[in-house]
Amino acid sequence: MRLLELIGCAMLCLAVACGKAGNSPDETGMPSPPEPRTVLKPGDTIKVMTYNIHHANPPSRPGEIDVEAIAAVINRENPDIVALQEVDVRTRRSGPSLDQARTLATRTGMQVFFSKSIDYQGGEYGNAILSKLPIVQRIRHELPSAPGASVEGRSLALIAVGTDDGGFVYIGSTHLDVSDTETRNMQVDKLREVNQHLSAPFVIGGDFNAQIGSETINRFVAGEMFRTACLGSCPNTIPATSPNRAIDFIFLNQEASSVFTVLSYATVNETYASDHRPVVTELKYR
């Protein structure tokens, strides 16, 4: 009789253990966390953010570096992909041991790709992309400048994530020149050239240093190659404390517009961490 009781107890324990598999509630009554996504599938919704982080220097604290503040903004919004601009990697001003791109990846639990725009103060400065989805391609494109123009080098960070049908969706992060219109126009021409070679959905976020209706943006969207993800007028993004103009955007190319539905588009009411407000959009795949 004792033996039968032991066998019954063992079978009961096995049944309980099996009942906890998958997304069933654990002993706290909470469901298990979902498995991380490895590819985009029809019906998936992703949140994309673009954020000029001002090398993690809060404008109210000249000379101070607060990477934790940037990470906190990202974590509060919980995006799937983040296009970052003005990122320092081991520069003297931010700290020769501080890689802001990798530090933000660690603090947010995301993968990262950094694209150097210039060498700066013993380190590098440029754009980065954070992604919860596995990054399957990492590409850097150098952007041109007008002959004779005294401007800072710029680049495009480009990644690809996989889709359930074996294809790719490309995500870009860029920062166009601030002072020279001819250079900006050449840079958007380069972005359009990159897009033509991709022949795939392409979502790009960045600081375009130009407003909707400007020569630069009109040139970028010509022929409906790109459109903003804005629903109505695009919200102002700079200065963060009291924004009076929009220069930070998320754009979709024609292929992206055909596979994504824009569910929302807004700025984040964040005034401390950077001189720009982040922009976020929610996109539903197919």
Rank of each mutant, 00 (worst) to 15 (best):
I129E: 14
S173G: 13
C230D: 14
I139T: 09
N127I: 03
Y120Q: 13
E282C: 02
P62M: 09
I129T: 09
Y265Q: 03
D275C: 01
L3H: 13
A17S: 13
R219A: 09
I7D: 11
A146L: 05
K20P: 05
S117I: 00
A101Q: 04
K132R: 15
Q100N: 07
S199R: 15
G109A: 06
E86V: 00
L283C: 01
E282R: 11
Q187W: 05
D26T: 06
T38H: 12
F226Y: 15
F260V: 03
P31T: 08
A17P: 04
R138L: 07
L156H: 04
D164Q: 14
Y170L: 04
I70F: 02
T45F: 04
Q187N: 14
D44A: 06
S32C: 05
P62K: 10
G167S: 13
I247Y: 02
E124S: 15
G126I: 00
I118C: 03
S155Y: 01
D177Y: 07
V48L: 02
E282K: 10
R192G: 02
V48T: 05
T183K: 04
P59E: 09
L40A: 08
P31E: 02
I212H: 13
I53N: 06
N244I: 15
K132M: 10
M30N: 11
D99V: 06
E27K: 15
Q211S: 14
Q100V: 04
T91L: 02
T261G: 04
K190R: 15
D80P: 03
T91S: 10
P235D: 08
R2V: 08
C234L: 03
P96G: 12
L283K: 03
S94E: 09
A146D: 09
M11V: 15
Y272M: 06
N236M: 05
Q121G: 07
A10I: 15
I65V: 14
V194M: 02
E215G: 10
I250S: 03
E124V: 05
F113S: 01
Q111R: 14
G123V: 03
F208G: 00
S115D: 09
P134E: 10
R184N: 12
L98H: 12
V221P: 06
V268H: 03
D189I: 05
A256T: 00
E182N: 14
S179K: 12
R192K: 15
R61N: 12
R107L: 15
F113K: 01
A105Q: 07
H175W: 00
R93T: 11
I250W: 08
E270K: 08
L133C: 01
A273N: 04
A72G: 14
T261M: 11
A222Q: 15
S173Q: 09
V73I: 10
R277T: 09
A160E: 06
H141K: 04
I212M: 13
N78P: 05
R61G: 07
P144F: 08
A229Y: 07
P79T: 14
C13E: 10
M186W: 10
D275N: 10
N195D: 15
S24L: 13
L263M: 11
G43K: 12
L263R: 14
R154W: 00
K284W: 08
